[in-house]
């Protein structure tokens, strides 16, 4: 692991979505985490974006109608 640097708000916010999307390597992730521990404003921003992302993830699941469920089972049954 590379040396952990202290980063400022601008750098932390630039990386925020990569961080929330789990797209950062360990060093860069740790740097963001360190900043979020000491900066209340960026921490609040991160919490907001994380919750909004959670709301979006919930929209990604939608039970189909019973009728469509039967249609898919019939389709699968024919394979």
């Amino acid at each position: 692991m590379n040396k952990i640097r202290l980063i400022g708000c601008e750098e932390a916010l630039n990386r925020l979505f990569d961080y929330l999307d789990h797209e950062l390597d360990e060093t860069r992730r740790t740097e963001v985490e360190q900043h979020l521990k000491i900066c209340r404003s960026c921490y609040s921003r991160a919490e907001f974006e994380k919750r909004l992302k959670g709301r979006l993830t919930a929209v990604g699941t939608e039970p189909p109608s019973d009728e469509f469920g039967r249609r898919i089972r019939a389709l699968l049954g024919g394979f």
């Binding site: 039970p63 189909p64 898919i72 699968l76």
Partner: peptide, 15 residues
């Protein structure tokens, strides 16, 4: 195949 599709159905339909 059938089991996997049934498990993913709510997500497939949501997307």
């Amino acid at each position: 195949f059938e089991q996997s599709v049934v498990q993913l159905l709510d997500r497939l339909f949501g997307a």
